[in-house]
Design a binder for these strands. Structure first.
Lengths: 220, 220
DNA sequence: ACCTGTTTGAAATGTACGTTTGAATCACTG
DNA sequence: CAGTGATTCAAACGTACATTTCAAACAGGT
């Protein structure tokens, strides 16, 4: 079997479980049963290995998302927020065809990427797939014309937080859910639970006075 | 000035900015202008220093939250979700009296703690302050009797994700908001934006069919 | 001023990391 | 089958880390 693939497969799983910084090249090459030096030989550095791991998923996912957004933009608008969010489901779940447990792994990696190395992944995705993300934002804007752009900005990032945090700690949460409610929830279950939550959250009315009395409010 | 305090102050700021794993004792002791060995002398280990940093805030915050929850539980119920969530605001902002920029620092630390070292902080808080959290969950349950306990569980964790992720990347987000919308948002501004978002999200109706056709849904 | 326990200091220890090196091995072509 | 470029391998390198050590400095009480 190809050394590069062995490394990528071992790396993605370890990265997803423990994060990028807490996974050493020695752990990766041991699990992959390849020589330590082969990472630097094939990928150049650990940083580039991380990028390669993420790119393997992003280059499949993002074009499909782009296509879905285009289809939605071609139809008469506005679309409902749950409909727009549901667009993510199929491309995400198709990652399971790319790799076993691909959806779960990718979302965990996304969570790690956004929290482990501050700002790096955000910049990377924005730089490479900014146009696709813009289409999504446009759809949401058309769906929620009552929301100022800045409110939408914050709410979309709150939503990103729900997603990546949930995915980063997905295993722990699934364990608790199993223990406390005897309920086994897989990645599709989590997504199905997220969508109505996020749809309601993003479209929430903008309250003007949520702060308790005595607290000066400084929102522009 | 007290060495312990110098260490705690330097550590909390570096931890909040870069995370626990990416902050070395050498950085901390250099910034605190104390000897490297003093961390182990005063706190025993880096792990215990992390706990001490978090405890300094938690031991102030949690009893106050507990008291607020008791007051709400003593009144006639149910309370509205924004009211329940607003209970967090005053105790959180009072952390600014404990330390300069205390609220911001604490919330960033919370974000780091939940994402950096998987599961550790969750266990710690549950173990030490589980009773207080139970009171909060009870209030939310009474406010949303239509929501099954397991749905509430997931939604509260989604919410936790929004909060800690936002706080962990608060600086980056604030920068973008300033650049894109010429809008400077401080920690109070973020909280004010979070509350209506979370209130709507947690209370969202439970949709039964959000998944696209062809996707088998496995929610219990 | 002297003892005593506490705190600080500079230096060293041992471990783990990412990366580099150069020889050995492989895979393929002429 | 000789030769050549790609790949693998064991070993080493340099760096950074948390932690330990032990002597020096300090503080307060008698």
């Amino acid at each position: 079997m190809n050394t590069q693939l062995k490394i990528l497969d071992a790396a993605q799983n370890l990265f997803a479980e423990a994060g990028f910084n807490d996974t050493s090249l020695r752990q990766i090459t041991t699990k992959a049963e390849v020589n330590l030096a082969s990472v630097n030989y094939h990928f150049g550095s650990k940083k580039e290995l991380i990028q390669a791991v993420l790119q393997r998923y992003l280059q499949v996912l993002m074009p499909r998302l782009d296509h879905e957004f285009d289809q939605l933009l071609a139809k008469t608008q506005p679309h409902s927020l749950p409909d727009i969010l549901a667009v993510f489901v199929k491309p995400l779940l198709e990652l399971n065809h790319v790799q076993r447990k691909g959806t779960r792994t990718f979302l965990q990696l996304l969570g790690r990427g956004y929290t482990d190395v501050q700002g790096h992944l955000r910049w990377f995705i924005n730089h490479h797939y900014g146009q696709t993300l813009d289409k999504f934002v446009l759809l949401v804007q058309q769906s929620c014309p009552h929301l100022p752009a800045s409110v939408l900005f914050w709410r979309l990032h709150f939503s990103l937080g729900s997603i990546v945090f949930t995915m980063a700690s997905n295993d722990a949460l699934a364990e608790i859910a199993l223990a406390d409610f005897n309920e086994s929830v897989d990645i599709e279950g989590v997504i199905a639970r997220l969508i109505p939550y996020l749809a309601a959250a993003i479209a929430a009315p903008v309250l003007t006075n949520v702060m308790p009395t005595g607290v000066t409010q400084t929102v522009a």
